[in-house]
Design a protein around this nucleic acid. Structure first.
Lengths: 321, 321
DNA sequence: TCAAAAGTGTTATCCTTACACCCATGT
DNA sequence: ACATGGGTGTAAGGATAACACTTTTGA
């Protein structure tokens, strides 16, 4: 795992003595062949990261530097996710605070391989309960049972109801519909309930990785959950999917990419019309022949919609006056 | 302006030598009597802020400490806005980087006065072009002319078109509708065009404060713009307005608060139905008699909708399968 | 009686959803 | 022929927007 970064950080910490460290950390996502992947560093499942330094021109460029250096992969689209300080974080010392500024980056997995210590891993290796493309996975059912048990274990009636309620919303009990945007809430709930490895719970109650997912270093899995939640919410109102697409693509490619991110299936004809109506794409004139059925038209993203559409999204009953 | 904070910061910086400073900074908003206000510190229009320190339990609690200490005002609802590092920031030194973690806080202006150096100031003193509650203000027309001139001053045809295009979107030229959510884009555009004081432009082209607005310390006005933009976007999909309301209120109070934030008028009957349909409020049983007309029913916020409604907000054509 | 604000009704329109169906190609 | 995916049609239901209108109070 990014030994270089770790070494450097230690050097700096040693030089400064007590103080505040600032780290940059990236959730780099690509969707090769309809599987949403995150770029990890080292054997221990870490997100690429490194300290923010005086030499960096900006936070973003610092992040780009680290990721490119560690993974060999240049970044395109970047947006800030969240900043947090840890107290409870693993390895945190009293006289040293660590601040992490996290980013979401969207890219395509290119042919030129990433560096040796970097790997593309499926989101759903870390969050098996999040992939509903083939119906609700087995993991969900098991976790539901565990969460109900956890809710019952609360000390007061109010606390039991509150736990039960939160679990029901996040994991869709009681005839609720599954809401794919609640990825972060679900992870936090499982953490609280001691059902993920990072929570450091009782080994006797430990679940297999196919249910509770692979753990990550420190709080990186929480950061990944934040990134997934943000992206799932964002694809609904901004055309960010196209950052993950090749220059030309069929409607099915596009749909499968959205489905991979959302973790659920969407309706083909309606999806097509949704995209067409917003004029997000235009025909290239070519067709893809390797579709297995009727050849599909190829499309490209109309980049100018980014300027053109300031996207109203009103939702308030405005007045004429 | 928060001398204590400044002094402390200097002490720390001196002790650490070169390094990275982390500041917490708050956009504290209340809407007393239908005027959206921000809490400022000192005579020079600064947002309340202070360094993040080892003694703080978390970023949020550090922020609460600073704001309460500086302004005497306890905070309720808080959300993180954005984190940035400055290079170009006024007063930035080469060997010292400053990181600011900004927050949006919503509260009510309480009777117990804030401390002497704190003031509630209208948003629209800083952004006169943002208040469209009585139609497009004069400032908009003047700024439009200046922006058109600025666009013409670009070096290439492409750059001229690009500037003109951005200005047209942000300031609603060419029959475009005004989009209140673009507060940040508008401020950034004016900054680029040298039309706000912070841009440090030619004094001969300087506009009066009734047009270009009051300047703030450092980049605080940009942070305020970020807060306004976030809040304007958020009231459309989350019931955060209620953080600004008294425990009981009439529909008109509620509407006027939303109008104050959005900077535009909304349609009364439709607004009422929107709120009713989402079951956001319930009658208290009382009526307000001081309305000037027919007495209005008083309502309270149904706090449980926060749990209850995980808010679908789908917007993707999901599939049955 | 009038001004002012509260509150209701009604319609046209658009968007979303669901589902049925036809089209073009390879094997 | 038929499987596979590409692509179109359409009708029901709900949300939104626009605007006309009635109700209840104080001055």
């Amino acid at each position: 795992m990014h030994d270089q970064a770790t070494r450097l950080r230690k050097t700096i910490t040693a030089r400064k003595g007590r103080g505040i460290d600032v780290d940059l950390i990236a959730v780099v996502t690509a969707v090769p062949d309809g599987e949403p992947c995150v770029l990890t560093q080292g054997q221990r499942d870490a997100l690429p990261s490194g300290p923010f330094e005086l030499s960096h021109r900006s936070l973003q460029s610092g992040l780009r530097d680290w990721v490119e250096q560690q993974t060999g992969h240049p970044l395109g689209y970047i947006e800030q996710l969240y900043t947090f300080a840890d107290r409870d974080r693993v390895g945190a010392r009293r006289e040293q605070r660590n601040i992490s500024i996290s980013y979401l980056a969207l890219t395509r997995r290119e042919a030129n391989a990433v560096s040796r210590e970097s790997h593309w891993k499926s989101w759903y290796a870390y969050f098996p309960w999040e992939d509903h493309r083939s119906g609700a996975p087995e993991a969900v059912k098991i976790l539901r049972r565990r969460l109900i048990a956890w809710a019952k274990g609360a000390s007061s009636v109010a606390a039991r109801r509150e736990r039960r309620q939160r679990a029901a919303i996040a994991f869709a009990f009681d005839d609720r519909a599954w809401n794919e945007d609640l990825t972060l809430q679900r992870y936090e709930l499982l953490f609280e309930a001691g059902l993920v490895e990072e929570a450091g719970g009782d080994p006797s109650t430990t679940l297999p990785a196919t249910v509770s997912g692979k753990a990550m270093v420190s709080d990186h899995r929480r950061i990944l959950a934040t990134g997934i939640a943000r992206l799932r919410a964002k694809i609904k109102y901004r055309p960010v999917v196209f950052e993950l697409m090749r220059p030309s693509f069929t409607f099915l490619h596009l749909q499968q990419t959205v489905e991979a991110l959302a973790g659920r299936l969407i309706n083909k004809p309606n999806f097509r019309r949704l995209v067409e109506q917003q004029e997000l794409v235009e025909e290239t004139g070519e067709t893809a022949l390797d579709t297995g059925g009727r050849p599909a038209k190829l499309y490209r993203f109309r980049r100018n919609v980014l300027d053109d559409r300031a996207i109203a999204g009103t939702k308030l009953p405005l007045s004429r006056a």
